[in-house]
Design a protein around this nucleic acid. Structure first.
Lengths: 197, 197, 197, 197
DNA sequence: TATGAATGAGGTTTCATTCAT
DNA sequence: GATGAATGAAACCTCATTCAT
């Protein structure tokens, strides 16, 4: 088998097993069993368990990045935000075990593994933050700390996806986009409530 | 030393170490080193590593629950929401390692340990969901799926707290409350943006 | 409490627990719980777990020795053998857990503990052997190696007692004495079988 | 090394060490030292210490079963009994540490381990019992409870073998068979003794 | 390149024993 | 003398990684 194919085969098996069991509970034995290769073969393609996890993360990152398109200032921003959200959530819910992998693991891998996950989210947050700043410059996003708000937004995405995965519910992408967008558009509290504040 | 003191000492040390390293990367050796007791002493007070983790979780749960007060329908709801948020975030940021412990661990402990964490969040979500339903009945919260929204809200809290902890930043509770509340009150997008949708 | 009483209290509790659980499965925690004393108290009276086991063995040995009376050459030997057997088996079956303790433990305690058990049986075997030699001198016991025969006899006693204890059956002392004595008197095979040998 | 060889190597080493030290006093460290393999290698071939003990027991059981042939009613029964005894004792004395292993362990391993040993003896006893019933039907064995007698017979075999092993004596199979058979044929007591009973 | 047997450091847990109160 | 909290050596077992074939 061509080296690239073999690598891909191991990578896919790893992604599946990591998604089902989490990083710590996955052993190299699980991976090689799922991939149908020998232990030694695994180490011919990846130097360590952590390395293959990082590779899985990188792959996912690319898929997620592909879903989020850059803002085009000449088009309506709001629609672009909505379209990006839809694509993102569809990407997240396209594969069953992805949310558990992505949101269920945060720390505890080891110094370098944690760093990899942190890097993953740092990149995502930078993207969101950039979008927010752009929105503020164009007057479509309220003033406020873009760093803090990007984190809030990330949480609003992660948590519903993660909870749905935890409870083995299918993530209704459309309903989530609607809810998120309603939230973005007008918040949670009605005008009626605001007379008292 | 009195058993209660010793238990507390081990519990505090565990909480700190779990918070720094996560559940899986924490070994009992780390805990007893942090607590300054012998290995056997640990097992005089807790039957297993998982048991002490659950005890830490229970303790945190009580602190969090204490921070969130029940809604009083005769008082202004919005203010109560704000007050609850402030107390909650203060509780979360009162101790450095708490967010990492609480938000960095999600799955992968083991069947029972995962269940404990899941239960922790299920309870929290029920509280938020109940508050939302109440708000909807009183007309201060927009219509929409309270289950989904409670998950979004939880994410909006967890993620900023978690990211601050990851980057060893102090969590500015006041800024976060302000941001969250602005978000709740009017969303993220300006009226100006909505003419185009 | 007087030291002697306390010692006896611990000894009795140990005997009971050892009988129920065997030596290895009995922990000092079990003993002190059964005796209702503190751990430290146990070590005030016995220097080690092994020591209390040896003391239990010594106590049992005395009871067994008391059951076996010396042969009186002026009385009928056969009746004395039968009477000794009856008393011995009654002593063995007088206490439920004794057989398991005595016959279920043989080796594996440790160098000294094994020695204690071995000594117990060595003494018992010497007694049987002596009785056999006496019987041979008086012409009531067939010629043959008394050492080997004493071991056979011990086995004939131990095994039924042990098996009964294993299956939680009451040991029918009278039936066992009858069977043993019939065995001693005429063996197992009928005269009819012997024509062929 | 081929897996089968390695497994056999570990099994043999285990058998030897169990025989010398007993189950409880044998640690996996002892076994791997005797086998000359690493700790992990042991667990590649046996899932637990108990499992290898059971494997040893199974192996022995097969050897013992092979020694005892079924009775052939058309041949002289007595000779067959004698031949079976000879083969059995030879099998038992063929390997030094076997008796200690087989007769020195009785209870205290753990729930499953005890069950394995009990099963071993239950099977052996059933075989003896069956032979006795057959003998009674053919009129070559005296009337009497076959269950009780089978236990006596087992004891008559076990104890001499065990004691010889304890004292590091070679077991003289021929002498033991002669003694046992004399015992079976006419008991221990002379006719002269019986006039008084 | 592919294999899988072998490795051994390190994990959790037990428990006989000690000793300060 | 009595207590029971504390100890730590040692047990069983796991699993990421190596390396001879």
């Amino acid at each position: 088998m061509a080296p690239d194919e073999r690598r891909t085969q191991i990578l896919l098996a790893s992604r599946s097993v990591f998604g089902q069991r989490g990083y710590q509970s996955t052993s190299v034995a699980h991976i090689v069993a799922a991939a149908g290769v020998a232990r030694g073969t695994f180490y011919n393609y990846f130097p360590s368990k952590r390395a293959v996890f990082k590779a899985v993360l990188d792959e996912i990152m690319k898929e997620v990045e592909g879903a989020v398109h850059g803002m085009n200032p000449t088009r309506d921003i709001t629609s672009q935000v909505r379209e990006n959200l839809e694509r993102l959530i569809l990407a997240l819910s396209a594969q069953d075990d992805l949310p558990r992998l992505l949101f269920g693991e945060a720390i505890g891998i080891d110094a370098e593994g944690d760093e990899a996950l942190r890097g993953f989210y740092a990149t995502a947050l930078k993207r969101i933050e950039h979008a927010l700043r752009l929105g503020q410059r164009f007057g479509v996003v309220h003033e406020g700390d873009p760093v803090l708000w990007s984190r809030c937004l990330l949480g609003m995405l992660k948590e519903p996806a993660f909870q749905a995965s935890l409870h083995n519910e299918a993530l209704d992408a459309h309903a989530l986009v609607d809810a998120l967008f309603a939230f973005l558009a007008r918040g949670l509290l009605t005008d009626g409530s605001k007379k008292d504040v």
